[in-house]
Simulated scan of single mutants.
Amino acid sequence: MQIEVPSLGSRSIFSKAERIDSYLRVLNALMLRDMRTRFAGSYWGYLVQVLWPVAHMFIIACAMTFRHVPPPFGDSTMVFAATGAIPALAFQYISREIMKGILTNKPLTYYPQVRTLDVMFSRVLVEIVSSFLGVMLIFSVLMAFGLNPIPIDPVTAICGYLCAIALGIGAGTINVAIVQVFPGWMLGYIGIGILLYMASGVLFMPSELPEQIYDYMKWNPVLQLVEWVRLGYDPSLPITIDYVYLFLWVFCTLTLGLTLERTIGRRGGA
């Protein structure tokens, strides 16, 4: 009777599979912990995160209706509000929550199985899922009101939305590096986020402003992301998107953030 002894190659396969399984377990635990600790230490509190974009849309629509301001394009104030709130909030929440995830889960990084990148990646996954759920909920609400939330050019609108997520991840990695050195940056970035939100054309059409002011405002990449999504709803809008400029923002922020995190992480480990 012969007994088969696992070869060295099979052992390496088993060990690699075990490492992958262990990594997935760590990510799963971090994601569940993030969802549970958002609001009131309950999974039900996670729904608040998903409902925020809907609340923003209603607030903007109600304010414009109360002031008797017609939508700058299309026939629906709610659709106009949604086209601005969705990309702006996708960027804002992801870039901010990645940073908050590091502060919340910092003690977990003292375990050898958990790295800072694991915490960042788990928070990114949670925020992307939350953002998608928020979009689906907004679409459901708009359809319930008898409105059509489907863009004329879906590819353009989806690409603008995905670029907002990518820029949020890039800015979030930079925030992670900064907040590990200056924890007070958390409050500072909240203030910056509010200014960016107000200056990104969520509440108005920047292209209707004087040309000199509009040219300066377009240096804000979030404004161009909002316009990119709105261009998918009305291709006739007098809007020109600098795609190279936005892609450079995404690439540079992600590269700089990962480089800073790696440098700071090594110093912290030392």
Rank of each mutant, 00 (worst) to 15 (best):
M1Y: 12
V5G: 02
S7Y: 08
G9P: 01
F14A: 13
A17W: 08
E18S: 15
S22Y: 00
S22M: 01
N28T: 06
A29M: 08
M31A: 15
M31F: 06
D34K: 11
M35Y: 06
R36I: 03
T37A: 03
R38I: 02
F39Y: 15
W44E: 05
L47S: 12
L51G: 06
L51N: 03
P53H: 03
V54R: 00
A55D: 00
H56I: 07
C62A: 01
F66Y: 14
R67V: 07
V69W: 06
P71T: 11
P71D: 10
F73N: 05
G74I: 11
M78A: 15
A81T: 08
A82E: 00
G84C: 04
A85N: 02
A88N: 06
Y93W: 10
M99Q: 14
K100A: 15
G101C: 11
I102E: 01
K106Q: 11
P112Y: 08
V119Y: 10
V119D: 07
F121C: 03
V124G: 06
L125K: 02
E127Q: 14
E127R: 12
S131G: 07
V135G: 02
F145E: 10
N148E: 05
I150T: 11
P151C: 07
P151N: 11
I158Y: 10
A164R: 06
A164V: 07
G168F: 10
G170L: 10
G172N: 11
T173S: 14
N175C: 11
N175R: 05
A177V: 00
Q180Y: 03
V181M: 02
V181G: 00
G184I: 09
G184D: 15
Y189K: 12
Y189L: 09
G191I: 00
I192A: 14
I194E: 04
Y197G: 09
F204Y: 15
E208W: 00
I213S: 01
I213Y: 02
Y214A: 14
D215I: 09
L223S: 01
Q224C: 03
E227V: 00
E227K: 01
G232W: 11
I239M: 03
T240M: 12
Y245W: 04
L246W: 10
F247H: 02
W249C: 05
T253N: 06
T255Y: 08
T255G: 03
T255P: 01
L256F: 09
L258H: 03
T259V: 10
L260W: 14
E261S: 01
T263G: 04
I264N: 02
I264K: 06
I264W: 09
G265E: 09
R266A: 05
